[in-house]
Design a protein around this nucleic acid. Structure first.
Length: 667
DNA sequence: CTAGGGTTAG
């Protein structure tokens, strides 16, 4: 059958005629159906699917054999072929009376598609043109697929509505469905609701625990994730019935440790993984590489990498290890590993991001360009971000700007921030102004942008312009991104926020900082106050700078560990230029190795030098990146919506199986 | 028959 040659869609006003009641015909049809059934698993090309569809039509089986029809629809909707899903929807539309399983097949396919929001539209009856065919009853499976879709487009409102519907539908005791619900809340960044669902479940299994654990780990609560993991691990030693943690538990827990840079916890999770016998699992090992690398132990990370047999390594194994080398500034090694990847592993966009990052951190500009030019996948915004940073940082501002201009899509906020940072670094007023203009157009209103622009003006002594930027800041209610740092002492994490006095020992810490400043002043330290944004006096500026969270963490580390011990600090943003200078001087004055992991990479300070060779000290504040990404995920997934209204899934439009009065009437 | 949880990312 040629493309698009289906009979016109049937509606409830134009139903499929019933087959004649002939026993001979029925027998023949039964044999044909059996044959079709055995053919189902072997369908692969779109042509196969169309031929199959044609045969179902010819046999009249679309109406008489709903189970086969639904299974066919399910396979069709999930087929990777681009035209398969639209075809499945066409088929669904042609059914005079779709069954629950037909709907579920389409929901499943849409939920897994690049536009998951369309699954919600289908559920709300807004994907089928009027007059819509009668809609089938929903079951737990329908909601499971819909929740998956809601999670994939971070639609918190849809998750809430689906929660209401599943309660009304009487399936709120279904462990799998409730786990999906929990997961959806977590993926929509509503961790409070995810926890409530967890707490309200009378029966849980390991997947339920894992869903909450992963949600906390990847959200804003890695500390809670580790507590939850401890709770789960404890039950392992109890008598059955108990939860059996598995490799998924381990991967999620390692992810929390990686985010926190919690080496002690990470080592415990590794030990526990061996105890429960999943220490050899590749995904566990991939997560171990990441955990060790983010905890600053590149050696342990590489040890795990080498322990994975060549044939067991996956794309993620390489991506993670290349990223580990990149973060430590080992760009040449990252490139080498990239070149050594077995040819049977197809590289992806993450591989390129890791390699380009490695070139960037090591200042390998030409290698980076070469890699970018030889990319085997179309470069995304992030790849352009990496190459623009690479070129801009190296002072090749014109090339960086050309790169932005040559992109097949308009630059986003982060990209202009990158160019602005580069313009600041190299004192290019024109590009700084251009970037700032674009940032204003795009609605960015974060302190870092203004600071960079005002610094460029200040470097050219254009004080009137500096004042203008400050006025704009005052008028615009500028957002500030709170910077914080952690340091771990004897397995306990201490968190510091800029200028905070929450720590029990804050007096000692501040007095230690005063000592530090006077001691490194003898080595020639002068505070670099131009980085402080507030419109405040010089003395206050020094004060604000002096108590950056990483300085508090270093000072605390210095007074809490024996002389000679390495001080490790983790920071959420990029380290500022002044803190970088201070860390170098402390490492010299106090004979300490200081390792700071910032948003982008590791800095290892030793004897007055940093492993980044001062190539990586600008203070671009890549704020709101998470929020931005989420926003892009949502809008990206909604581009093909019929309209921009939120998908309201009206409770009143459903029939509920436990209500006999409504059950009889299937719309 | 068809469902849930996982690592890498400017």
């Amino acid at each position: 059958m040629a493309d698009g040659q289906f009979p016109p869609p049937r509606t409830h006003t134009n139903p499929m005629p019933p087959l004649p009641p002939s026993t001979a015909a029925a027998a023949a049809s039964a044999a044909a159906l059996q044959q079709l059934e055995s053919l189902l698993p072997r369908l692969s090309t779109l042509s196969h699917y169309k031929q199959y569809h044609a045969r179902l039509l010819a046999l009249g089986s679309l109406g008489t054999c709903p189970p086969l029809r639904a299974r066919f629809l399910d396979r069709l909707a999930l087929s990777p072929h681009a035209a398969a899903l639209p075809h499945a929807l066409l088929l669904l539309r042609s059914l005079p009376a779709p069954a629950t399983n037909d709907l579920n097949a389409a929901l499943r396919g849409l939920a897994a598609s690049p536009q998951p929001a369309r699954a919600l539209l289908l559920l709300a009856g807004r994907l089928l043109p009027a007059p819509a065919p009668p809609r089938p009853r929903l079951d737990a499976l329908s909601l499971s697929f819909a929740l998956k879709a809601a999670a994939r487009c971070s639609d918190a409102l849809a998750t809430l509505q689906l929660h209401a519907i599943l309660v009304r539908l009487g399936v709120a005791a279904d462990v799998r469905l409730m786990t999906t619900l929990l997961d959806s809340y977590a993926k929509c960044s509503d961790l409070a609701s995810a926890r409530k669902v967890f707490d309200g479940m009378h029966v849980r299994d390991v997947a339920t625990w894992n869903a909450l654990l992963a949600g906390l780990a990847q959200g804003t609560e890695p500390d809670l994730a580790i507590s939850l993991f401890r709770r789960l691990a404890r039950t392992y030693w109890e008598l059955p019935p108990r939860e059996e943690p598995n490799e998924v538990t381990i991967v999620a827990a390692l992810s929390a440790c990686a985010q926190l840079g919690a080496l002690q916890d990470g080592l415990c999770v590794h030990e526990f993984a061996r105890t429960i016998g999943v220490g050899d699992n590749v995904r566990v090992r991939n997560a171990l590489i990441d955990m060790y690398s983010k905890c600053g132990s590149l050696n342990r990370a590489l040890e795990v990498f080498r322990s994975i047999k060549l044939e067991d390594r996956t794309l993620v194994t390489y991506n993670t290890t290349i990223q580990a080398l990149s973060m430590q500034g080992h760009g040449t090694d990252a490139l080498k590993l990239f070149d050594e990847m077995p040819e049977w592993i197809e590289v992806d966009e993450v591989t390129y991001l890791a390699v380009l990052g490695g070139c960037n951190h090591a200042g390998l500009v030409d290698d980076g360009r070469r890699v970018f030019n030889s990319m085997r996948v179309p470069p995304s915004m992030k790849h352009y971000g990496a190459i623009v940073d690479l070129l801009g940082r190296a002072g090749r501002l014109a090339e960086a700007h050309d790169m932005i201009m040559s992109m097949p899509f308009p630059a986003d906020i982060v990209l202009w921030q990158t160019l602005l940072g580069a313009a600041k670094m190299h004192g290019n007023v024109e590009l700084a102004e251009l970037s700032a203009t674009k940032l204003a157009e795009l609605g960015s209103n974060v302190d870092g942008d203004y600071v960079l622009l005002s610094n460029v003006y200040a470097s050219k002594a254009r004080w009137a312009d500096v004042g203008r930027v400050r006025d704009t800041m005052r008028n615009n209610d500028v957002k500030k991104v709170p910077g914080f740092s952690y340091t771990e002492i004897d397995g306990v994490r201490h968190k510091f926020i800029n200028g905070d006095k929450e720590h029990l020992k804050w007096r000692e810490i501040y007095s230690a900082l005063d000592d530090i400043v006077s001691r490194i002043s003898e080595l020639g330290y002068e505070p670099e106050t131009s980085n402080v944004l507030h419109d405040i006096g010089e003395e206050e500026k020094q004060y604000a700078l002096c108590y950056h969270s990483e300085k508090l963490a270093i000072a605390f580390g210095l007074i809490s560990t024996p002389p000679g011990d390495t001080i490790r600090v983790i920071k959420n943003l990029r380290i500022c230029g002044d803190c970088h200078v201070v860390a170098k001087l402390i490492s010299k004055a106090y004979g300490r190795v200081i390792i700071i992991r910032d948003r982008a990479r590791f800095h290892q300070f030793e004897d007055g030098e940093c492993s980044c060779r001062d190539y990586w000290t600008t203070e671009i504040v890549n704020v709101a990146k998470e929020g931005l990404r989420q926003q892009q995920r949502m809008t990206g997934s909604s581009t093909e919506l019929l309209d921009a209204r939120p998908t309201m899934i009206a409770l009143s439009s459903f029939t509920f199986s436990h209500d006999p009065r409504q059950q009889a009437n299937s719309w």
